[in-house]
Amino acid sequence: MRSLEQQIATTAQDTGFSGVVQVDWRGNTEVALAYGYADRAFAIGTRLDTQLGTASATKTLTALTTLALVEQGVLALSTTARSLLGDDLPDVAEDVTVEHLLAHRSGIGDYLDEDTLGAATDYVMTVPVHQLVTAEDYLRVLGGHPTVFPAGERFAYNNGGYVVLALLSERASGVGYHELVRRCVLEPAGMVDTAFLRSDELPGRAARGYLDREGLRTNVLHLPVVGVGDGGAYTTTADLHRLWKALHAGEIIAPPSVELMLRPHGEWPEESRRYGLGLHLHETGTAAWLEGSDAGVSMTSVHDPSQELTWTVISNWTDGAWPLVNLLNEQLRL
């Protein structure tokens, strides 16, 4: 893969990539490269073990946590949201289930409707972002969004649905969402460098998320200070590759649950893909992936068992990952 490494280096230089790229093939790491700055103001370079934001890739952690709770009997795929929400979020219909939420088929109104949002770097939160720390805190932004279509009718990507899943998991188990993710996913997978960090007090090994290719303005005022359900985890490429390995080894959830997760539950022709339960799926092939895009964050992590191939690109600026993602999609035949 020497020529691929050279192409990555050229693309990274030409496009201002800042972040980490890793390619594993047949059990071996073929490419592992870090570029740019984790902290531009102090010229602190990005390293292979730099913790980077993941945005919506966090949804996969939420899906795995939910399915682990289903295996434990704490939840069922048929559990209705209403049965645990009580008087909260009255706009969520009576028949919306955990499975509907996992598959983006709930029809609930979304607090961050991506079809109506402008640029990723716009200010989109309706409450001060420092007030959003726990799942219960998000009730303030989840409410007041009427149902868009009947549950199960069709697929429509929905951020709020995954925050609702975090709420349901907490209320059913009596354990906080972040702790549930740690117990159900991070520990079994050996993801020692993955955590829900506060964006306003990032530790030294975590990268700041920048809005643009150049400049010092970060995303700290654009995103919830701590993500819950639909985004916010920080991780490394190595940890994401551990996640894929542990998932397919049945170390997080049992093989039947993995199979269910990878089964298409919705068609997404506008994006030339399908969707399982918390995973994006190739429109015809065997590849599955995590994807995240937000102010100061862009990333993709792909696993294709037919090629014994896993690759990940994570960038700490809004559009930084996409040129390398496009390159790897082309060269590695996603």
Results as ranks from 00 to 15, higher is better:
T80P: 02
T126G: 01
L117V: 12
A172T: 04
L77G: 12
L52V: 13
A166Q: 08
A68M: 09
T134W: 06
V70K: 06
R47Y: 08
S169C: 08
K59L: 01
R105T: 15
L64P: 01
E170Q: 07
L33A: 13
T80S: 01
A166H: 02
D88C: 02
D49T: 12
A151S: 10
L165T: 10
A38P: 06
T65C: 13
L142C: 09
T54H: 03
L75F: 04
L139N: 02
E179T: 14
I108M: 02
A68R: 15
Y177I: 08
A63L: 04
I108Q: 07
N158P: 11
T79C: 06
L168E: 04
G160K: 10
T50G: 08
L33Q: 14
K59I: 05
V92D: 00
D88V: 05
G36K: 07
A43V: 00
G86Q: 03
G144E: 13
Y162S: 11
R82C: 05
T50W: 06
I44W: 05
T66C: 12
T116W: 11
Y177Q: 02
E153K: 14
Q72C: 04
A172E: 04
G176L: 03
G176R: 14
A57Y: 00
V124T: 14
G73E: 09
L168G: 01
V129P: 02
V141W: 06
T80F: 01
A43P: 03
D95P: 10
H130G: 09
G109N: 03
E99A: 14
V70I: 15
V96Y: 01
R140T: 14
Q72M: 14
G45I: 00
G107Q: 10
Y35D: 05
L165C: 07
T147Q: 15
L142N: 11
